[in-house]
Write a protein that binds this DNA or RNA. Sequence first.
DNA 1: GCCGTTTTCGGCCCGACTGTTTTCAGTCG
Length: 579
Amino acid sequence: METAMKNAEIARIFSEIADMLDFLGDSPFRVRAYRSAARYLMDMEEPIERVAEGGEKALDELPYIGHDLAAKILEYLATGRVRKHEELKKQVPPGVLEVMRVPGVGPKTAKLLYDELGVDSLAAFKEALESGRVLELPGFGEKKRARLLHNLELVEAAGRRRPLGEVLWVARALVERLEQLPQVEHAALAGSARRYKETVGDLDLLAASRRGRAVTDAFVRFPEVDEVLLSGASRATVFLKTGLQVDLKIVEPDAWGSGLQYFTGSKDHSIHLRTMALDRGLKINEYGVWKGARRIAGKTEEEVYSALGLPWIPPPLREDRGEIEAAQAGALPELVQLDQIKGDLQVHSTWSDGKATLEELAAAAAERGYAYLAVTDHSPAVRVAGGVPPEKVAERIAAIRAVNEKTGGRPYLLAGAEVDVLPDGRLDYPDEVLAQLEIVLVAVHAHFSLDRQRQTRRILKALENPYVHVLAHPTARHLGKRDPIEADWEKIFETARALGKAVEIDGYYARLDLPDTLARRAGELGLTVSLSTDAHAVDHLRFMELAVGTAQRAWLGPDRILNTRNLKELQNWLEAVRG
DNA sequence: GCCGTTTTCGGCCCGACTGTTTTCAGTCG
């Protein structure tokens, strides 16, 4: 399988260059050029070194990459560094970039904080906010101080945790590399990433080998590794060039199952299991299940669970949220699987802010074996997203139909929209426009801070519109950047249920919205759940795996999921909603 | 720094929101 590790490394360098230029007051257009290139590199699945085989010319042909950045990519691939990046780092204190990551702090504020108060780290920023020293600065008042303090705490709470989707594919690449080592019998991703937890602090990898030292020796020499924290016979901890911490543990092949169980966690789940074991006169550790000095299980995870009289429990359920009791009762839920998904129910095209044309989306969906794809471009209120004005909707629908004509409807593109919910709950398209669309999603994109009551009323009103099918990314959160909006979800779910409408799990890696716990509640209340990627580029379609992982963490089975249905069934459902 | 039925320099999205301000700067999307 292809891996795109270098893409992430170069993206990080370009993104840091952008931040530093921004701080130094360079041209905002140059800053944006670096940011766009970084984002493009992160989005692309093809390894950049593969493109680079075609030389500077091939790189130059990529969007957002011109003569200059092509040269910098080649420089990085040849030397492992970019001179401009190194030079800027001498001019900008590293902590300043952290401060700029606090929402509400841009380059101007960061510069002011640094020049006037010497703020060069998050800690110094926090001190300046708490002591009130910031109030000396022009443009700073009490409200701003309080807001920035809150945002700082948000960033701190997110800590070094990263969205799962930022690291999952990196993890897979490392696992493959481990599997190729001759001393390694198996390798796997463990930890919270295996459980599809929305954010991960570090990566936990497990390898089975009789020669641990040789494995860690090889591992710390992987080209992605920047710094080695420790390396021994049974474990190694490193930092990758992307700043990500990776722990590798090695167990004997006979202990593979117990090692995998132990390092997958969660901690609460494992503690619960160990307590159960003690009640039966057994002991569990990472080396096996023990009866006295005799090992009675450990080669596979199935064996470990079976030793406790339990069926194997899928990792996304392992949070000690009732899964062990359910397993004991033989009542583990059937979970939806990625290969049961027949289509993606929220994607954006070049008609609004997507990077892919309708034709490109159709081709990418066909490649994934999808039967259908809902093209749901933005409505005009989301200005930054180039929303489609109502008078252009008919033209857009015609363009979608034309693609279906051409492809024979394989996959079938549904003419949809992601319609903004205005602050008072009215929708951003009139009913006669909504009526022309085959699928209508509604979503909040602004006015996040309405109080709970007004926010709830706003969403209920949107759901009550007879043309609406799905409430998309309901909480509007952005991992590590924006809190979920406050609303009475119980009431919203009950209303959606009564109206026969669906709620969404948006699988875009920075959203994962509904979050797992709310999605579980939605499932318990009998709601239909729509899975999507919110793709703005064809490569984003891969985030369906994250939507499915989140659905699994929410205990959702295929019968709860709207897009496990075939096209005809989906169309029947869409029509039935409108009565 | 990218891009171009403008091929070579000038344009690059720009309005809403917030908090602070007496008319606006900074940030965000």
